[in-house]
Simulated assay, not measured.
Amino acid sequence: MKSDLQSVDKPSGAGRPRDPRIDTAVLAAAAELVAEVGYASLTMAAIADRAGTTKTALYRRWSSKVELVHEAVFPTSPSALTTPEGDIVGDIRGMIAAARDVFSSPAVRASLPGLMADMGADADLNERVVARFRGLFDVVRIRLEHGIERGEVHRDVQPDRLIEIIGGATMLRMLLHPDEELGDSWVDETAAIVTHGVIGID
């Protein structure tokens, strides 16, 4: 596997596109390894070896371990918002369930403290990493705007604050009770509280 991925990644000339198989293999390797050895012990060399490629190939795609691990463990697809447009209650519950699934994964549990420390120490790095979520924030903003137009959502509800509340509540719950599973009842109860603060008629 290693020789195959190395060979397809070597550019034969300027502008040759990189093989997306390497990206997939590297992200999978990073997620696996951080759950196995922890963020502090994780190295780019180990990720490259697990993915069957080279450190050079990694650094052509990600400038640091932080950016690589962040992309590996935190999805940015707005797939949580799968309910039809117009169901703001379903949207909120879907977002909370998605946050629960992400933050309870072994890879996120292992990497989050180290990621937060590294990102907090470098403002430029933090901005680059957080920029990955702009697409998701846009989807939330559009859904809230449509809810306001329908008279279902308070006009002062901001998408950034809603995402912070959902993510913050999920992380705090994991910190307070790390050994307890977050089940659907927690999702339902949290969704009921958040929805009560979001929905209203002006």
Rank of each mutant, 00 (worst) to 15 (best):
R161G: 13
E85D: 15
G151H: 01
E32R: 10
A31E: 03
S104F: 02
E36K: 10
G135Y: 00
D160W: 12
G13C: 05
G168Y: 03
R93H: 10
D179T: 12
R173W: 01
D87L: 01
R141T: 14
W62G: 01
R134Q: 12
T76A: 11
K10Y: 15
G183H: 07
A29H: 01
W186V: 04
D188F: 09
S104Y: 01
G120D: 04
P178L: 09
S7P: 00
K10T: 14
T82Y: 03
S111E: 03
L33N: 01
L144S: 10
Q158E: 12
L125Q: 06
P159N: 08
V187T: 14
P84I: 01
R132C: 09
A110E: 05
H196Y: 09
A123Q: 09
E152V: 08
A169Y: 06
S12E: 15
I165V: 15
A28P: 06
P17F: 08
G114Q: 08
A28R: 09
D124L: 09
P84V: 08
L125D: 02
R128K: 14
G38Q: 02
A191Q: 05
A45Q: 05
M44T: 10
S77W: 03
A72L: 08
A110C: 07
T53D: 01
S12H: 08
S7N: 02
V34P: 00
P78M: 14
A14F: 13
P113R: 10
G90P: 11
K2A: 13
T54F: 00
G86C: 02
A29Q: 04
A35L: 07
I96W: 06
T76Q: 07
E149I: 06
